[in-house]
Each structure stands twice: as C-alpha cells, then as structure tokens.
Nucleic acid binder design. Sequence first.
DNA 1: GCGGCGATTCAACAAACGTTGAATTTCTTC
DNA 2: GAAGAAATTCAACGTTTGTTGAATCGCCGC
Lengths: 228, 228
Amino acid sequence: MLSSALQSQKQNAMATHRSQTKREKILDVAEELFALHGYDGVTLRQIAAGAKVDVALANYHYGKKLDLFNAVFERRAALLNEARLEALHQCQRESGSGGPTVEQIIEAFLRPLELAQETGDPGWRHYLALIAYINNSPYWGPRMMSKLFDELVLEFIDALRTALPGAREEDIFWCYHNLSGALTLTLAQTGRIDKLSGGSCQSADFQAAYDHMIPFVAAGFRQVCREQ
Amino acid sequence: MLSSALQSQKQNAMATHRSQTKREKILDVAEELFALHGYDGVTLRQIAAGAKVDVALANYHYGKKLDLFNAVFERRAALLNEARLEALHQCQRESGSGGPTVEQIIEAFLRPLELAQETGDPGWRHYLALIAYINNSPYWGPRMMSKLFDELVLEFIDALRTALPGAREEDIFWCYHNLSGALTLTLAQTGRIDKLSGGSCQSADFQAAYDHMIPFVAAGFRQVCREQ
DNA sequence: GCGGCGATTCAACAAACGTTGAATTTCTTC
DNA sequence: GAAGAAATTCAACGTTTGTTGAATCGCCGC
C-alpha cells in the first residue's frame, strides 16, 4: 500500500497511459521557449513542434496562447512558495527569541531556488529564467508578479523588519528592491558574468551566486537600515 | 557667432527643414515600444503608426527590423559611456594617491544615468529600460551587451580592484554581478516596488534608487571582498 | 522653371500567425 | 467487443507580419 504522497507522484509519472504525457510536454517546451525568447518571441507552432504535437493540441488543453503562458507561470509557483516559506519558518523556529538574523532570512529566501535546480529537472532552471523575464518586464511584471508572489515577499519583509529594528520603511523596501534585482539577473542566466570575468564566474552555478549574494545583500541591508 | 557645440545642437533641432525629423521620430517611437514590449512584441506597423509615417519608411532609413533595433540600441550608447567614463576619471583625479573609494566609484557608475534622465528628454528613460530588457534577456544579452559596454565595465572593475586590495577576482565579479542586477531592475521601471511598498518607494525616482543603491552596494563589496 | 535627388507613400507580395470546427485516433467503461 | 468519451490530428480560415518595387512628393541647384 502506497502513501497518498507517493501515489500522486506515481500518477504523475505514469499518467493515464500517455494522456498527460503530451499535455505536460507542451508545458515543458513552452516553459523553455518563453524563458528564452519571451511571450511574443515564441509561436504556438514552435511549441507544438518542440513537443512533437499538432498545433491545435495546445489550444485544446490550455485555450488561448495567453492562457498557456499563465499556465506555465502558475505550474510551479505554489511549490516554490511553499519551499521558501518552509525555509523561513524553519530558521525562525531555530533562532532564539530575537528572531533570525538578516543572513538567515536572506538564505531562506534564496536557497530553496537552488534546491529546485538540484532535483535534476531542467524545467526548474527554465522556470526561474521565466520568472526573471516576467519580473524585469515593464509590461508583464505589474500584471503577473503580484498575484503569485506578493504575499510571500511581504512575509520575508516582515521578518527583515524584525531583524532590523528602527529601520525606515522606504529603506527596507529599497534594499529588497536591490536584492530582487540581483536575484533576477541571476535567474535570467544570461552568461554575461562568465564572459566578463573571463571564466572566473559561471552563471549556471547558482550555489556560487548565492554564496556571494547572501553576505553581499545582508551587508547592504545593515548599512542602509542601520539605526539612525 | 555660435559655439560649435551649440551649432550642432541647433542643427539637430532644426534639421534640414524636416528631413531628419521623421527619421529620428521613428527611432524615438521604436525606442519606447521596444523597451516596453521587447523586440518581438513590437511590429514595424506599430512603430510607423506611432511616428505617423508609412511602414516602408523605417525600412528605407534603417533597413531590416533587426537593423532598426540595433540602431536604437547604439544611438545613445557612446554618449552614455562618455558620461560615465568622465565621472570615473573625475573622481580619480579628485581623490588622493590612494585612489577613489568604493562609494565614489559606484557613484560614478550610477549618477550619469540619473543625469541622462534630467535632460527632460523622455527618450533617455525609454533607452535605459531598453538596456534593462536586453541585459536581462538570455537571448539578446550575450549578443548585444558586450560590444558596447564591456570596455567601460572593465574600467570600473579595474578601479574597484584598486580600491579593494587583496580581493579575489571571482568575488569582485560576483559583486559586480549583484550591482548590475540591482541596476538593471531599476532601469526596467516595472513599478513593482511602488506597489509592494504601498507607495513608500517610486520606481520613477532614480535619485532615490541610487541614494539607496550606492551605500547598499558599497557595503556589499566591502563585506565580500574584505581582505582574508 | 526645370532636372535631379533624397524622402516619403502606395500597393502588394508570400509567409507565418493564432484560432477553430470537423474528422480521426486512442483510451475507458461496461 | 461495442459504445462513448477524451485526446489528438487534419485542414483551413481570416489577419497580420516583414519586406520590396514602383510611384509620388518636396526641395535644391542651376
């Protein structure tokens, strides 16, 4: 007798003898292409070709192109939010009555993104690049980011407020903006830092990126939000 | 008798009785639309309509769509690079034999972007958003950023290396990566921080963004690149 | 005022786009 | 194994796309 968790995994893996295979393959290919070329840079025919499927099948499963785009964006959001929230709560439990340090909070914000990569599923890498594309877009950013990620971000900002007593509201948010920017460019995986550094740094190495980002951002928060 | 600098301004303003007006209007509209919707999200007909011009005129002046995209990207690059390099050299001259501090170098890297906005030309705002789009794109970033901006960036990194003796190469580049990310998200002007902060922060206020980014980034550099 | 030339528009092309209704295959259920 | 439902393909639609060649406009020198 399988546990219900394992059962649902089993269902996802085998599906109903093929049916969900093509359906999910469409999402996988759309995820990769949207992340690389953006919404308008990808045609439904490219996605269908990549998934070895007729172009009408995407419409059958997901409706219009915009609905497919949203489906890709929403597929992994809940899982990601749960992992990050769990990491925040864990460091809050483990810290004393003073609450977690800035470093611990930033770490809880970033490390789950790295774990997502380590599942071996390349889809996660593409998904993170898609988030970077959307978050940095003046068109899509305001339309899509808030609904799925604002609640989580505000929880982390609450924790940071506690860890930085006396900080001004605007200072905290501008610091979060800097963190979000550094993270976004990392997720985009443009490979630019590889070339600039002559090979010293690798965009694909999320662990190295976060190893440097955590002390960098924490020091920035403390400098800007230090008590007046 | 006008100075040659003013003369060239005058020429730009009056042009040859109209001829350069439509030609430049196409660039202006393309700049704004490309920044907002990306390369594939804009059609030549939208650009032509915005410039109140026939669709064939863009082709006549700039060739293919990709050539127009490049023309927009290149138009203001040299001017921007000169302003930033001048700011770097000035703070190098003003500093003692020890060279400028990290804060001064970051300031020279960022403040010229703010001055560009203060000329009153809204085109600069759109251009900076276009840089953000390209820099964050896994497709365009590697293809377009290096040629115009690598030389300048490496000059600033040289200055930072001097200001941070004993720092590891990879640490410096990862820190620059964080700076570049924070800056990129700022230039994108998505308005997301406005909503998240409930109005405490405004994306359009570049000065406030840099006022917070300079100490934030400088502290990050010092923390990560401190002597071992 | 006429010829020439750059700037601009007109008209049209073939290709590719998102979307859809109907036909066909594949699976599930009895 | 027949019936019904779901999944998938087929074929086509009306638009829109980037691009181009030819025609027209507007100005300047002669």
